[in-house]
Design a protein around this nucleic acid. Structure first.
Lengths: 140, 140
DNA sequence: CAATTGATGTAATAACATTACATATCAAAA
DNA sequence: TTTTGATATGTAATGTTATTACATCAATTG
């Protein structure tokens, strides 16, 4: 194991964006975040996107590709798998009714996908796994 | 086995859009398709999006969420698994260098994901699995 | 023939994201 | 301490992706 990747120091804008995401359970678009931060001086999308880029890089935030939206990482500390470095990818279950997102990890899924990649000589950089549907509450 | 889902009859616009996608290996954005079809009378994005909606519904085309782009389905006939009905989901490996997309299926991955869903009472509607990275040719 | 349904055409607008350029902040090197 | 370099920030403009709204057309069917 290398450097334990202690929590990075966030800049003002990064903190503001992260706090907004961290205070809600549902994913948020960059423009929604922007609107939430107008009172704090945000005027342009780029301020949000720049902060998000860093937070993604730090592994503190995930992008949901099928939604063009962002969520705070749900396993903030601890947890087994190195996340944010391309291996140990994360899966999401997204409720299309209430918007709730569950983040989970399945080692076997990872294994099968990286196995396929190895056989094909494909070098994975980032893996997206998103299940859209209805959460148990909304399905009832 | 139920009705063998014979190839649906496509309208003029649907055929045009499908042909464009089917003639190339790399994914294409809706606007790129639009440009390719200007000569055939296409003038507005909606003409493309409407055709794509149907083709997606027919399972003849896939949307790559991480790219906001579309590809023709790579296992056009035959193949074991019913595709396009939510189960038997498909995975994609997308080369970020050459744009090539490989479509594949892993039964075990499906199983693990639907298993997780079952345990959580989550009702999956559509599953997205996309690996971005470098294909064997580009990695060399 | 209405009436319904599905496909189409067109314009306008909404939603998401980036480029380009100017300025500011701060820590390390000279 | 001043310079330098790297990172962060502010702002405007633009580019890209997707949808809404409304009108028309064609085929089917009651």
């Amino acid at each position: 194991m290398n450097a334990p990747v202690s929590a990075p120091v966030l800049t003002k804008n990064q903190s503001l964006v992260f706090d907004v995401l961290n205070r809600t359970d549902a994913p948020m678009s960059a423009y929604t975040i922007l609107d939430k931060l107008r009172d704090h001086g945000f005027r342009a999308p780029l301020q949000v996107y720049r902060a998000l880029d860093k937070l993604l890089e730090f592994g503190m935030v995930h992008r949901l590709e099928s939604l063009n939206a962002f969520v705070a990482c749900a396993h903030p500390e601890s947890e087994c798998c190195g996340h944010g470095h391309g291996h140990g990818s994360v899966a999401f279950a997204i409720c299309e009714s209430c918007g709730h997102v569950s983040e989970f990890h399945d080692h076997e899924v990872d294994h099968r996908l990286s196995d396929w990649a190895k056989r094909k000589g494909f070098k994975p950089a980032k893996t997206t796994i998103e299940i859209r549907g209805l959460c148990s509450a909304c399905a009832a």
